[in-house]
Write a protein that binds this DNA or RNA. Structure first.
Lengths: 289, 289
DNA sequence: TCAAAAGAATTCCTTATGCATTGCATAGGA
DNA sequence: TCCTATGCAATGCATAAGGAATTCTTTTGA
């Protein structure tokens, strides 16, 4: 393999016309530079510098190598410069996987905060179900997951960071028990439940605890669609508070259920994940939400 | 100053997806490669490889460095190669790719002529199909290709240099129309055609022009094999004249077909190929064939 | 001003070892 | 029966220490 120090020494000698001068510039002694050039010549099997009289001039081969060498050295400089933004943290990429609800109502805030601190940060959000996302985390196709707990995986590290209460949601003006509706109360309603993995499981368990089996009239994969349906008076639902705490109070009536029902969101990463500046920033912003 | 060994180690690890594999390929131990990459990362102040579980993947920064590194390493290879013609003693080496027929009947003459002028010239011939050879030309694994035209490639320069007529070939003593056999005449014969890319295509077109679809009884990848079969009286064929103009007139009857059918051979090189003395010589001898 | 030789310093590689992840096997629970 | 959990062997990378090789400096000569 060629050696960049040797190439640089060679170029410098030609440019300055002297081994001694090149040595001085490089902070070395003259014999060191002589040796570098000599080794390069040996390596290529070609005489590169004609030591004639006082000035060091390139041989024909040296002349041609000069062009190549300059290009190579310039390429190295360019490469080094290209790395600087990454070092400063001015550039980076964080790939986040998340369920649909969090993507809409929770991530944007965190992402906005992170972007404010690191404007060059590139953030990619992939929406999917928990299993797929965790698989991508394990395969390092994603850097960070935001999922509803519980979640497991031997190579994963999971950090709960947000409690989100599930609320009973009814059309505007519906009568709601003051202590909050319980399972008994809800069973008579036309129920539309969100067909998300852990969120749905939590809901089922809540009914189950009261000895009731949840029998939703409809199941939807989209919280937003359910909100529309409830607002239209089709029926009731139980939805994450983060999804209904926006401007929807004008068309929906919400209340905590009895006993209260909370789902926990967590961040998941590979245990051995290397924390880049950008990733660290995003995690910090998520914790602060 | 950056270090080419480190860059090469880094690229190799990414390409092979493993430190251990890269080490093996480089004839080193795994810790050596780990160290190379680590030093490179320290030097640039950036994480380059995500050691995720069992696989090694490039980080965003690594991905960008990868492009630079490849360019730099290729530049080094080019530079080294450019020095070869200046090297004393070794006159050079020319790597030629060619189809089977040309390799047997055309190249030897040209090579002999070149060797006569430059006795020290080292010549390597690789036989293969046009696609593979052109790919090797583009990748600079070959210096010069001799292929049947048409051939194309963005980075290739192609120079036609030889017209080779395709002849009808029959067992010795077969009656041949004086004006030469046409497609109509040939269709009744037991046909054995050479299964080469452009040569075969030219033959098909010749039949097609007469409104006849070539229906060979057999197809062979070897012209020599077909000659044997024709000589044994199995059937007729249409073969490059260069393949049957040798000592085969004792066992074969040949004739130009009507209308005449000619295939064109060309030389192909990378457009930016540096012409060494040896390469120039070989090209000259090929033109003179 | 450059080249050559000998000793010194540094770099780089190898061996040995530890830690983490992974895949498979076996056992337990819904 | 299927899914989940736990233990074990295997694999791959990181680290540390010793040693080989390279590369530098000093000195001297042309």
């Amino acid at each position: 393999m060629l050696n960049l120090d040797q190439l640089a020494a060679f170029v410098s000698v030609i440019d300055l016309g002297s081994f001694t001068a090149a040595a001085e510039k490089a902070g070395l002694t003259q014999p060191a530079v002589s040796l570098q050039v000599k080794l390069l010549e040996q390596r290529l099997g070609v005489r590169l510098i004609e030591r004639v009289g006082r000035r060091a001039q390139p041989s024909p081969a040296g002349l041609e190598l000069l062009e190549h060498a300059r290009r190579i050295l310039e390429g190295c400089a360019t490469a080094e410069e290209a790395m600087a933004p990454y070092r400063e943290g001015a550039i980076g990429r964080v790939r986040i996987g998340s369920g649909g609800t969090a993507s809409i109502h929770l991530l944007p805030r965190a992402i906005a905060a992170a972007k404010k601190r690191m404007p060059g940060l590139e953030i990619i959000v992939r929406i999917g179900n928990t299993d797929d996302i965790l698989r991508d985390i394990e395969a390092n196709r994603l850097d960070l997951a935001v999922v509803t707990l519980p979640a497991s995986g031997r190579s994963l590290e999971i950090e709960p960071f947000y409690h989100d209460e599930l609320l009973a949601v009814a059309p505007k003006g519906s009568s709601m028990p003051t202590a909050g509706p319980d399972a008994e109360f809800m069973r008579d309603k036309t129920l539309m439940l969100y067909e998300g993995g852990n969120t749905r499981r939590a809901t089922d368990n809540w009914f189950m605890a009261a000895g009731i089996r949840a029998e939703p009239a409809m199941e939807f994969g989209s919280v937003e669609a359910i909100k529309e349906l409830v607002a239209a008076g089709i029926g009731w639902s139980i939805l994450p508070s983060m999804a209904v705490n926006g401007g929807s109070s004008a068309v929906l009536t919400t209340s905590p259920v009895r006993p209260r029902l909370v789902r926990e969101l967590g961040m998941a990463m590979r245990r051995d994940k290397h924390l880049t500046k950008g990733l660290r920033e995003v995690i910090r912003c998520l914790r602060e939400v």
